[in-house]
Amino acid sequence: MMATNAEKLVDESTASEEWDPKIIVFCCNWCSYAGADLAGVSRLQMPTDFLVIRTMCSARVDPEFVLRAFAKGADGVLVAGCHPADCHYIGGNYRTRRRIAILRVLLEQYGFDPDRLRLEWISASEGEKFQKTIREFTERIKEIGPNPLKED
């Protein structure tokens, strides 16, 4: 029913593959998690190197979670929430925006590439944006290379 251009979008990640990055994606329950589901319902194909953790609101994403993920070897962390003004909890996403902005500055100050942390607004109808975000972010992380903190 949702026949898409899936065939044309055959996995691109295999081509440039040398190492598989590990990416943690925090999705808010109401918009971004629903957007990720819609990507699935629409059969939009994307790289496999990410794992989603659902919180009720993006504002639940404690900066500690992000730092923990990096400390444990995550190559990238994506935080996705409702678009400004669409937050299910009135204004939680504005807090997320501020927290992530500060966190990126801190990461940079400690010599960590701030591009490893990304914030995106993805609504429940933006399956394609979820796909695009995952693709672009995965590419970017591959460019940056493995997390230097990763023990090997």
Binding site: D11, A36, D37, A39, V41, R43, L44, M46, T48, V52
Partner: peptide, 21 residues
């Protein structure tokens, strides 16, 4: 664990990786 909408449906051509995920 959402292994359909956020796994098998978005990694339809990658059995190994989708299974691992």
């Amino acid at each position: 664990a959402n292994i359909r909408d956020q796994c098998s449906w978005i990694h339809m051509h990658e059995e190994e990786k989708a299974t691992k995920k």
